[in-house]
């Protein structure tokens, strides 16, 4: 019981801080494992259609362009660095540095979402929003002089994947906001910073998803030179 008296951050049902921290870490990783399987379903659909209609995937991916997606990739990698530095600051008990890095991470995350919004707007203007505003390219090309329904499937998947990723970003931003407020209120110390670490794990995971989405969605058509 003595451990409880010393550390108010240890909840009553844990024996000590070590057990609490290990439980939280394991729980977070289990949660991330479910997230992996959640995205796995989307990646499976992506892979299957890419295997079935590779020409559609190349051409439609080419239409996305790589500039904005590339910028966003860089932004997210930067945010992962700032997040890692934030956890580092928490480990060393540097409150100001922690809050600073958290804010930087949030700023980069918001930038990512802003760029994403610009992209979505472009897709709308290019009539590439399935179900709401979509125009087929007809004839598709010399080999397929007719409407190819998988064109829409590509963009549908694009919106599903980036949309769900975007929702995760929004969730991540909310979590970071809470963590920043907690840090501001001196909730953390060199012995207790588990929430910062957990938020970091989540943020890095969302970054990893994008690491896969970028080449799969944007770069697939990068070698496309027109023609067939």
């Amino acid at each position: 019981m003595s451990a409880h008296a010393h550390n108010p951050a240890v909840l009553h049902h844990f024996a000590d801080a070590e057990q609490q921290k290990e439980s939280a870490t394991l729980g977070m990783w289990l949660f991330l494992a479910t997230e992996v399987l959640l995205f796995a379903g989307l990646f499976l659909v992506y892979t299957l259609f890419r295997w079935k209609v590779p020409y559609v995937w190349v051409k439609e991916s080419y239409l996305l362009g790589i500039t904005l997606g590339g910028i966003n990739t860089a932004v997210l990698i930067c945010s992962s660095l700032t997040m890692a530095l934030g956890v580092h600051a928490a480990q060393e008990g540097k409150k100001k540095a922690l809050i600073g890095w958290l804010l930087a991470t949030m700023l980069l995350g918001a930038t990512f979402l802003g760029v994403k919004a610009i992209e979505y707007h472009e897709h709308w203007e290019h009539h590439k929003v399935p179900g709401l505003n979509f125009t087929y390219t007809v004839p598709y090309d010399n080999a397929h002089p007719y409407k190819v329904p998988e064109q829409q499937v590509f963009h549908f998947l694009y919106f599903c994947m980036t949309g769900i990723h975007g929702l995760h970003m929004v969730a991540g931003l909310s979590i970071l906001t809470v963590i920043a407020i907690m840090a501001y209120r001196d909730k953390f110390s060199t012995t207790y910073y588990t929430p910062v670490e957990m938020a970091g794990l989540y943020w890095h995971f969302v970054d990893i998803v994008w690491v896969f989405l970028f080449p799969l969605l944007y770069l697939t058509g990068n070698h496309y030179t027109g023609g067939h």
Binding site: M83, G200, F205, V211, F212, L216
Partner: peptide
């Protein structure tokens, strides 16, 4: 390449 990047993030950042 993506797997290498993801592995780096997991091993060190995470």
């Amino acid at each position: 390449i993506a797997i290498v990047k993801a592995t780096l993030i997991m091993l060190f950042f995470m």
